[in-house]
Write a protein that binds this DNA or RNA. Structure first.
Length: 502
RNA sequence: GCCCCGAUAGUGUAGUCCGGCCCAGCAUCUAGGGUUUUCGACCCUAUGACCCGGGUUCGAAUCCCGGUCGGGGCACCA
């Protein structure tokens, strides 16, 4: 019997297995964005990684809005509650349920009381700065730490009922004052904040901190594996402390390093300001680098996913280039992308002595797939004359007498520069090839359509595209020959497109 | 000051757990060539890396020790 070939079903399993799969009945993971705005390219790593593993193990993914009241610098953006799911849909992320931290405050209170009763937490009324300098740094417990649970419970009630003002008291978890790592000493897990919350208003004045709320929720929600940025390793340790206290199984913690982009500066707070000011066109302005903005530019979500997955799970901080995303995008979309001519701020050339038979230009919709047919551009010649627009930078490098070709149309010689006049020379491309003459793109004066193109830096340029673009639908991803890829995001006059990449 | 983590070509990554198949694979970038009526795609070629120093070993990118450099934490932020 012939030896059967080794069966390789080799899916794209380039990422390592999740640890301790056998310890968990099901892989359950979570996405925990803070709703300060839409997800951007920098958040994509967290999202894609979690989604990837959940799909790989047919597990469950929970979207948890980590919307406890933050510091005054970290503000919840109401719109984010919708913008985040929108971004997830774009990325093709499948999540199975949505949870709001702000709905679970009572749960955190319940455990807080329990921890106090057990003597694992206490209400500390020390001044934050004093505590930091005199107790944490020196490893010396404050007097609150020794209070009995009755007294602590009484203080806890005073936090809830408003006897204590903001900053006057906080609950600390006894992670240990002798821990060699100062970062781990009796961390605050609940504190008072009277800021209004966009979802629950003024219902609560005591709010949990991230590490505490997750210490409870990762267990309550049945989370088996956690993949998150390494800025949260200390938080992970505190969570483990809580899990141990209750003898809960420890979810598997995995961290990845910080991701930066050479060619994109990400700042949610700046974006937020500029969007509200109207400086940015909205949350899909390319300068926000939001997932919405990538969608608007025609970046295929698959390109983002691929680029993110290629980074793996390394914990080192890395700086990559958007070029890797663009490269993936080209691979994904180039073959299906129709071509068109677009000329920014065209310079008009009077073309004379046109061949009588020259009525339209015939250009392949896609050069690699001739079977897709031709796009036809009427030339509107009258008495052998017509007017064409070309790129200033092309024209300015031509000398008088230069033989050049308007791509897929005909060859001309430049007769005069100011104003530009060109004479028809011949029709076959070989003529310019022989002299290695330039072949440039162009648009007819008659019938071309105005285009406003938004560049990656948010600036816009105006120009004209060949007539056929007028009939294209919103969402069409196209390539302006010699210019780059772009997507139509709004039709009308002008048609609005967003530049994607070269 | 105290704690933690990391180090493979320009960038990113595989290999490191279980030393030899790695004079180190892949992607991207860059350069050159081919092809193409685009500055796109495609094809070919080229340059280019195991942080340093010791040790263990027949053999180390892989194990051990020391150093250097880099990142992060020490918030009543997330």
């Amino acid at each position: 019997m012939a030896k059967p070939e080794v069966v390789e079903i080799e899916e794209d399993k380039e990422l390592p297995e999740l640890p301790n799969l056998d310890k968990w009945p099901k892989v359950i993971m979570r996405l925990a964005p803070f709703p300060s705005g839409p997800l951007h390219i920098g958040n994509a790593r967290m999202v894609v990684l979690n989604d990837y593993y959940v799909k790989r193990y047919k597990g469950e993914l929970i979207l948890v809005f980590d919307d406890t009241i933050g510091s005054t610098e970290k503000v919840i953006e109401q719109d984010a509650y919708d913008l985040i799911p929108e971004g997830l849909d774009y990325l093709g992320v499948e999540y199975h349920k949505t949870v709001y931290k702000s709905d679970r405050i009572d749960l955190f209170y319940k455990y807080a009381v329990d921890l106090i009763k057990r003597g694992e937490a206490y209400v500390c009324d020390c001044d934050a700065a004093v505590w930091r300098n005199e107790h944490k740094v020196k490893g010396i417990p404050c007097s609150c730490r020794g209070l009995d649970s009755q007294e602590n419970l009484a203080r806890w009630e005073k936090m809830l009922d408003g006897t204590y003002a903001e900053k006057e008291a906080a609950v600390r978890l006894k992670t240990g004052m002798t821990d060699p790592d100062p970062a781990m000493r009796d961390h605050v897990i609940l504190r008072i904040s009277e800021n209004e919350h966009p979802r629950v208003g003024m219902k609560y004045r005591v709010w949990p901190l991230l590490e505490y709320s997750w210490g409870i929720d990762d267990h309550e929600l049945g989370v088996s594996h956690i993949i998150r940025g390494k800025d949260l390793v200390k938080e992970g340790k505190i969570e483990q402390h809580i899990w141990s206290l209750y003898n809960w199984p420890h979810p598997e913690l995995m961290y990845y390093g910080r991701l930066k982009f050479e060619d994109a500066k990400l700042s949610k707070s700046k974006s937020r300001k500029e969007v509200h000011d109207g400086t940015y066109s909205g949350w899909d302005d390319p300068r926000t680098w939001s997932l919405q903005s990538l969608d608007r530019r025609g970046i295929d979500a698959e390109a983002v996913r691929k680029a993110m997955l290629d980074l793996g799970l390394s914990i080192v901080d890395i700086k990559i280039s958007m070029k890797s995303v663009y490269s993936e995008n080209r691979k994904l979309r180039d073959a299906e992308t129709p071509r068109a001519f677009f000329v920014q701020d065209p310079v008009w050339i009077a073309a004379e002595n046109l061949d009588r038979g020259l009525i339209e230009a015939h250009i392949p919709v896609h050069p690699d797939f001739p079977e897709r047919g031709l796009r036809k551009i009427p030339l509107h010649a009258v008495d052998g004359k017509s007017i064409f627009g070309v790129q200033q930078s092309d024209l300015s490098r031509f000398k008088l007498g230069t033989l050049f070709r308007l791509k897929d149309m005909a060859n001309f010689t430049l007769e005069k520069k100011n104003p530009p006049i060109a004479h028809y020379h011949s029709s076959e491309v070989e003529q310019v090839r022989k002299v290695n003459g330039p072949i440039i793109h162009w648009i007819p004066r008659e019938g071309s359509v105005p285009i406003e193109m938004t560049l990656v830096d948010g600036s816009t340029v105006m120009g004209l595209a060949e007539p056929g673009v007028e009939k294209m639908k919103v969402g069409t991803f196209l390539q302006f020959e010699r210019v780059g890829f772009a997507r139509i995001y709004k039709t009308g006059d002008p048609i609005q497109v967003s530049f994607a990449h070269k």
